[in-house]
Design a protein around this nucleic acid. Structure first.
Lengths: 356, 356
DNA sequence: GTCAACATAGTGAACGATCACTATTTTGGT
DNA sequence: ACCAAAATAGTGATCGTTCACTATGTTGAC
């Protein structure tokens, strides 16, 4: 680690101000202000040039704090980091921060500590103090009345339950595809190990899992509620009674899937020969695991950009942006080594349940 | 995802100001200002009470922007996110942000895009505009003259080469311990797969690897420069000629180690029977890999707090803080399943080279 | 040449806090 | 009671912008 402490004691570079620029250019401060506001529009070319050279000579940079004070806009958004066992989405963060910057905002980081309530308190405080114009939360803000906030709050990359029709189905489609694919491979009895159910995505995958099982007339041995961790996958499989009949497991994440694979190995079950496992996230590690985990690719950069885009739109009072590329192109099944034909390979699916 | 756009059009809650509070309490604005400055010290108890109830009645919160403008202090620090293949240290970020908050700072997030130069430009810009009082970079800022910055810049969790005597040795100690341990197990011919050498830690582990090999009179088949990725570990091992004699590999990270294990499997070598592998980071996934990766535990929260503590100290002009707990307690070898006795098990080490 | 309409530039007052002073009240020793 | 010193409180200026006006200069149609 290294420190470069500049700013020798007493160093006071005396930054020049708008007024200095105006004086130097022989104009009024307001004219210079206009130069920044309209980017030079509405100024005579000569005036503009004078201003520009004055700026250059004085190495002037506007004082953004003063501007904020007058305009009552801070241009700052807050982003609430996830805690706990969730993914560590640096790509997501980078992409979100980058979009914010492109749109002229800066991003403030709010750390996680304590439970959701405490964390949210911190966020609302920030908002109430007028420090930020909007909040993007990467962890669920469960049980929170976001309406109490004075600024827009976006929770990402998850979707609200009530927005299901809009976007959730896409995510759901992928979950359904996994089950369909495994069923097509000849599996009939499944287990789902869910993620932390405070996350909408965990609830969603869980729900679609059950729906798909029902729709195709398959058997679910059960659903184990986990927390996205490898440990939770490991525990779930270690707790499986012999003779459960489960031949395929849909894990909520790659992390969980790796735990599953290890537990299977401990119990003497071969993956994928005795047990097929499907994950979600396409982490690099799971690609190099033995066996490599079959999973779902996810474009975290896209998600990050999109989440931030929505926040920016909300802050500006613009209508909600449409999803960028279709979700379909983002979530893609990738079949590697942890899934193989099951005991009913080649046989047709059981008759689908008729809708009543 | 969900949006709650509050702030119905035209809503102007009219936040109350310090002056409002003063009027309501029947005092001067300066007295109220003092209340905040000294936290009530130096005020008569009655005065303090009057102020407090006025604040409560008006739901007053100081305008931090106005305060910043007057004091010329922003209370903001920037943190530059890592890009590329480095670890995704959410714990690090959270801990750093939390410490900053405890110390009264807010943290601004600067996304990564483009190369180091571009990224650094962005940081210096922030600093020059007087927006932030210090910068913490999680990725290396190679080739950068930090002295050109007008604010302190800390690069973490790495150490500068010239600070080696202070802290690097601890990290180095751990790397040496790994080699010593493997040698004690009966290994004599090693391979090191380094991390991205722009990171000081990668350079450091690489150097200590070589030094330890020399010191103990062992044989290094070579060093492969990687980029922290599993792919780099995989490629290194796939490229190893038969009969290289390598029986133990020191991988710069768990990520790399997993790639190594997979490549070994592909080549028909058993880990740890034919090849011992040691990683670094103690990621959850590598604990559940088969075989579980022997590795080094790292306390990322501690690192995050410490890095931020150093920045805060630098910003305040205080002396450099001492390392919190000793590094020794932080980096600890944890032996799992990927290392086993080698071909010379039980035999004494070759005679150490004498120093000339 | 006149005058309205438009294009440019200028003036002074905010924004909401803190700073550097000055003014007033309390305190306590005699 | 008195008065200096200490403890409290108040006054006015100021930080660097932008806002809402007002003022001046430039056109072009008649």
């Amino acid at each position: 680690m290294s420190v470069e402490s500049q700013g020798a004691p007493g160093r006071t570079p005396k930054r020049s101000t708008l007024l200095d620029v105006a004086r130097r250019a022989g104009l009024s401060h307001q004219t210079v202000s206009r130069y920044y506001r309209d980017n030079g529009e509405g100024l005579k070319a000569a005036t503009k040039t004078r201003i520009e050279s004055a700026i250059a000579e004085l190495d002037y940079r506007p004082n953004l704090i003063a501007r904020s004070m007058r305009t009552r806009r801070t241009g700052r958004l807050a982003i609430v980091l996830p805690g706990g066992r969730a993914l560590h989405p640096t790509e997501f963060l980078n992409a979100a921060a980058e979009l914010a910057r492109e749109e002229g905002f800066t991003v403030e980081m709010v750390g996680y500590d304590g439970d959701a309530a405490e964390r949210l308190g911190r966020v609302l405080e920030l908002a109430d103090w007028g420090q930020v114009e909007g909040v993007l939360s990467i962890s669920p803000l469960d049980g929170v009345d976001r309406r109490a906030s004075s600024v827009p709050i976006v929770v990402a990359p998850e979707y609200d339950d009530d927005m299901r029709a809009l976007r959730n189905l896409a995510d759901g489609d992928t979950a359904a595809e996994i089950i369909e694919h495994l069923a097509g491979l000849g599996h009939r009895t499944f287990l789902h190990i869910a993620g932390d159910l405070r996350w909408t995505s965990a609830r969603n995958r869980r729900r679609v899992y059950q729906e798909t099982i029902d729709r195709l007339g398959l058997t679910s041995y059960g659903i184990v509620d986990g927390d996205w961790s490898a440990q939770s996958g490991f525990d779930a499989v270690m707790g499986l009674p012999v003779g459960s009949g489960v031949t395929a497991i849909f894990a909520a994440s790659d992390q969980v899937a790796v735990g599953v694979v290890r537990a299977a190995w401990r119990r003497g079950w071969k993956v994928p020969d005795d047990l097929s496992v499907w994950g979600w996230d396409d982490q690099e590690l799971s690609r190099f695991a033995v066996p490599a985990i079959s999973t779902v690719t996810v474009d975290r950069e896209l998600e990050g950009r999109f989440a931030m885009r929505r926040l920016v739109a909300a802050v500006r009072g613009e209508p909600e942006p449409l999803e960028e590329p279709s979700r379909k192109t983002v979530n893609r099944l990738v079949d590697r080594e942890s899934a193989a034909p099951g005991p009913f390979a080649g046989q047709p699916l059981p008759r689908r349940r008729s809708a009543r």
